[in-house]
Design a protein around this nucleic acid. Structure first.
Lengths: 119, 119
DNA sequence: CCTGTAGGTTAGTATATGCTAACCTACAGA
DNA sequence: TCTGTAGGTTAGCATATACTAACCTACAGG
């Protein structure tokens, strides 16, 4: 279940998009991230190869068990870190940007410790 | 004064090493980071080109004003983030590793907000 | 004097990422 | 029917980083 920061981001975006629309396609991911469709195409190929997603012949992207686990972990971190920064007085936008970077590098231990403190 | 994560790390290490020894050389940096001397050599070339360091003909590395400013900012973040995580109950080792990654991605705003909360 | 070692550099390799350009397929609509 | 557009793929480029291999210089010590 090894991943890179970029893969984690793609998986998270797929999860988020799937919450608000019936199906997620490469173009949707590209638009959301502001990336070119070719970049997303290559990234999806990698995610397929690593069994993090499956793609139907119509181009609909679905998270596998593995992919979903990663996506949900990252998404939870994102939500939590963003909210936490906002409680510290950081603006919503900056909090979101920072959460988006910190979520990929913080350890499980530190994240859990932070959650515990916030209860 | 533009930098990458890797450059920031090198500058921080140079600063830290200079606190405990009279001079800092490429090999010292390589040993500290666990990198090969060739990698450090190339990195030092980039830091020279961007005027973040100067290197004497003996191979002694010194931070420029710019380089020192970056190094000290990152070092302050490192210290603070590491201490903060330890107060949350994270082990010294993990806190240090996490600080080392978060220090490069957290925004000025968030860092200041966190500092304020810790007073 | 001569050789081995320390410190440094350069060239070329590899991975991760995103980009542009060119191309393909399928389908909607004049 | 014919064409334009949407969605997707592939090839090749560019940057950031670290690595291995090969080489150079200088100096210590037999």
């Amino acid at each position: 279940m090894h991943t890179n920061e970029s893969s984690e981001n793609y998986l998270e975006v797929i999860l988020v998009l799937s919450k608000t629309r019936p199906v997620v396609r490469s173009v949707d991911v590209a638009e959301e991230l502001g990336f070119k469709k070719s970049s997303v195409s290559v990234a999806m190929k990698h995610l397929r190869e690593r069994n993090h997603i499956t793609v139907t012949k119509e181009g609909y992207i679905y998270l596998t068990e593995d992919g979903k686990a990663i996506a949900e972990m990252i998404y939870e971190r994102h939500q939590f870190l963003s909210d936490w920064l906002v409680t510290l007085g950081v603006s919503k936008e900056i909090a979101d940007e920072d959460a988006c970077r910190i979520e990929h590098v913080i350890s499980k231990e530190s994240f859990e410790a932070l959650k515990k403190q916030m209860i």
